[in-house]
Design a protein around this nucleic acid. Structure first.
Lengths: 353, 353
DNA sequence: ATCTGTGTATATAACGTTGTACAGCCCGCC
DNA sequence: GGCGGGCTGTACAACGTTATATACACAGAT
């Protein structure tokens, strides 16, 4: 049916191995034979069978990328960067969605698609250190995120610093009563959230303010109704908040919508800041201040570490890499800039802005 | 290093094939042997080598999904649905990003990862009928989208109907001067855009309005500066537009932002409608009216057709399936609903809304 | 008592590729 | 002129799995 090396070899009148040599650009093949083989290759439209090749080579050139979701903007952007990074190492990425479910995360860590993937990049939500100790699979593994002491390489941003930076920014524009909306998926340790909250407290303390636990609202699912309810809860506190620190941009979008519905102006009444730097934040009104993790760096470090493990880096214990981030102040904290009021045309101004 | 069937066989004192039979749940294995083998399997932590299995079986259980982008919300949602649909058929999906580049699309159609994938779902932007005629690879292929006469199965929404529905909606709320912003990637036929524009014209004609080509703005890239410039162009026309039909939601988000910056109110001055039904459209203010393609149906049909081809459906020529869509009128055309003005608390109202 | 059939297990041959070992050959060098 | 050594090319054996053919035991039917 499909043409194999053998077929090509017969047509060119050479051995199978010679054809293989031509296909793999082996140096020592005489020009005449090479030409003849190349011709036969084209005539028959040969395509290598990668299953066979992988079996023989013991490598597949594929890595798995397992994320809680590929649906939302943050992870899809990250996935994109990892794919591009992997490409540079001649690796194909198999993307898998765990939905943050423990069983799926375990399946991934235990090497689903065994011997078909050379390595795994996993962003765990529920998987704990215990699971990793029990791990039997030996496929190289790199983790994304900040859950504490693992038995595997990991790359993450410094969530404490993030929490601190966001809070300091809100303090710097004169806000004093800062609500927090954190994403706390059910059944999750919520380690990241804790650390980020820790940064928030630290910034408050540095400014001589006391931490008020009633200002912290938790949201089960990242989008939708829950965030709305949480926003209401914060708005209905006896003493009015003047700022809102959302642990991700998607929460912030929902919150801002809710603020609008309830008649609060952003940032005049309440300043809002998120985390992630998703694209939509730049186009809505007011544009969303946010903290942008250096996704490029995360992607690069994760792939680099994984490749090192695949290449057989001696197992000198788990390594941890911190990735950077940038605070991006926009209208939701700094105030609106309107070019003009009312529907009057103004070509030049528009062109300039 | 890694345990193979042979190792398990030796430990259990049986033949390799017997172990294989146990692994594959073959019926005729005596309970005693089955128990012994199962034990050995566990003891050694056996993992099948999928490369070898695939080689032997001639199937990999993997399909490729190639999209122009996996970064944006529309395609990431679609990808998600296709993955879930494929799961039901015991298929793993390998997602690939073509960036709408011709060469990448050709690579995919020509079966990259040969013999490792059982089938391909491709959403082409530049690939033409000619490319498909030249196609040498025989891997089953299903196309997403509406480019005209292909030599492969395809599933798509009826873009003419979409264009017509959106336009009729704008007409129904009394708008008469409707700008169009279409996404027209460089070097692309832009077939979809043409058909959608055709629906727009048809709706105008039905309402007794004349088509004005100056109302059509084209945007090269889906997001960012281009859409801003295009919005300006439409706003700077001598006669004021009162509605804007954007060919996708991302364009609409940028356009609405720009309208705001230039002082136009949505929908009072200009009503806006998009296409795709991305999540962000529900949370921004005003919420974005849009046309939502039935992505679930697209995913289901695409996978179904592909599986049929893989199972060896006789090649009775290309099949085409139309998927449905829904018009979702929201604030950007129907008007804002404010709960209350000013930052006064109002617990009960908020709880109810 | 022999034949047929069925359940159980095995040995062996694939699947398509690449690494290893080796066989010529031609070159230059002692 | 023999001899080591690089260049070409081949035969064969793997890689780990599953399909095929076969062997054997034991049942029931002839």
């Amino acid at each position: 049916m499909r043409t194999r090396l053998k077929d090509v070899a017969e047509r060119a009148g050479v051995s199978v191995k010679t054809v293989s040599n031509v296909v793999n650009d082996y140096v020592h093949v005489s020009p005449e034979l090479r030409a003849k083989v190349t011709q036969a290759l084209e005539d028959l439209g040969y395509r290598p069978n990668l299953s066979a090749r992988n079996l023989r080579r013991g490598r597949s050139g594929m890595i798995a990328l397992a994320l809680p979701s590929v649906h939302g903007p943050y992870f899809s952007e990250l996935a994109h960067l990892i794919v591009r990074e992997a490409e540079q190492h001649d690796l194909t990425v198999l993307i898998d969605c765990t939905y943050g479910e423990l069983t799926r995360e375990q399946t991934v860590a235990e090497g689903f698609r065994t011997h078909l993937i050379d390595g795994i990049i996993l962003c765990p939500w529920q998987l704990g250190a215990a699971d990793l100790r029990k791990r039997e699979d030996t496929t190289p593994l790199v983790l994304l995120g900040e859950r504490v002491s693992y038995g595997a390489d990991a790359v993450a941003i410094d969530s404490r610093a993030v929490g601190q930076a966001a809070t300091e920014h809100l303090l710097s524009i004169g806000r004093r009563r800062i609500g927090v909306m954190r994403h706390l998926p059910r059944n999750t340790g919520g380690v990241v959230g804790k650390i980020r909250l820790d940064g928030y407290k630290r910034a408050l303390a540095a400014a001589g303010l006391e931490f008020d636990p009633t200002l912290v609202a938790s949201v089960d699912r990242a989008h939708g109704l829950d965030a709305k309810v949480a926003t209401d809860a914060l708005l209905d506190l006896p003493e009015q908040i003047d700022a809102l620190f959302c642990f991700n941009d998607e929460l912030a979008l929902v919150a801002m919508r809710r603020l609008y519905e309830r008649g609060y102006r952003v940032p005049d009444d309440i300043a809002v800041i998120g985390v992630d730097g998703i694209a939509a934040g730049a186009t809505i009104t007011p544009t969303l201040s946010t903290i942008v993790p250096d996704k490029q760096q995360i992607a690069a470090e994760a792939v680099r570490m994984l490749v090192e493990r695949i290449e057989g880096e001696p197992d000198d214990g788990a390594r941890r890499v911190k990735a950077g981030f940038t605070l991006l102040p926009r209208e939701s904290t700094m105030g609106l800039k309107r070019v003009r009021r009312g529907p009057r045309r103004s070509t030049k101004q528009a062109a300039r802005s």
